[in-house]
Design a protein around this nucleic acid. Sequence first.
DNA 1: TTACACTTGCAAGTCATTTGCATTTAGTAT
DNA 2: ATACTAAATGCAAATGACTTGCAAGTGTAA
Lengths: 134, 134
Amino acid sequence: MKEVLKKKGYKITPARMAILEIFSKSQSPLDAESVYKKLKKMQKNINEVTVYRTLSSFTSEGILKRIDLRKNSTYFELIDKHHHHIVCTNCDTVEDFENGEVEKILGKIVTKLSKFKRIREHSLELFGLCVKCT
Amino acid sequence: MKEVLKKKGYKITPARMAILEIFSKSQSPLDAESVYKKLKKMQKNINEVTVYRTLSSFTSEGILKRIDLRKNSTYFELIDKHHHHIVCTNCDTVEDFENGEVEKILGKIVTKLSKFKRIREHSLELFGLCVKCT
DNA sequence: TTACACTTGCAAGTCATTTGCATTTAGTAT
DNA sequence: ATACTAAATGCAAATGACTTGCAAGTGTAA
């Protein structure tokens, strides 16, 4: 884990290690507030501002990516989690799915349908009703 | 256009007509502020709060959909525009694309890979560098 | 171990969006 | 047409996610 930070030229601080650890253990995307709460539970005394700053720099350095779940805060996830989300618009349950075909097609789109040379990132979120809420 | 509003049980007001008109003429997603500015240019004296409320109710009634372009405000678009966006992370240019395969695959995903019965909506946005910014 | 740039915490600020409440207005019944 | 009523609007103020300035603390390379 330290490797990751060093490679990016970051200093290894308790805050960064803890936040990285939280994300690597989490199955679902997290927003700043929930990261902050988890830090508290871990007895880490880290300011909420630091959480915001860390999420921001991790995102611009390609460690995390933003996930839009249509809530009022921004969610993040480790960038190497290759899956997408299905969100229940009633109970907010988030289910993951992975599908290689989606990625293939996005590749095609870039080269054939768009003038863009390369896609760095994409976001794909589905919204519907989960089994319980149907 | 009035039909749309009546069907949803809305009262037909100048504000709603104007906002619907703005969206149907716009090629790109709009946020509250840009809708408000367009209203001003059209000499319509409509409060910004009304814009927010209209965008919100149109969205929950399925007239508009939210688009996350990773800016600091929320963008919206008519729900019947069946395309996705490629956003240049450098100059903020938004290019549209349409691709039936994406929709097909999403259909498969819902039935095969997920416990969700039906997807109501999805969001797919790509981020990269446009030709000029490459 | 020392110096210095990078990090953090605190307080205050910013800005998109929401809310309470009084007023106005569209749609319906009279 | 007219009156009625629920819905829609405007205004001012509040909310809440997120950012910033600055002083103090801390990794890290030499």
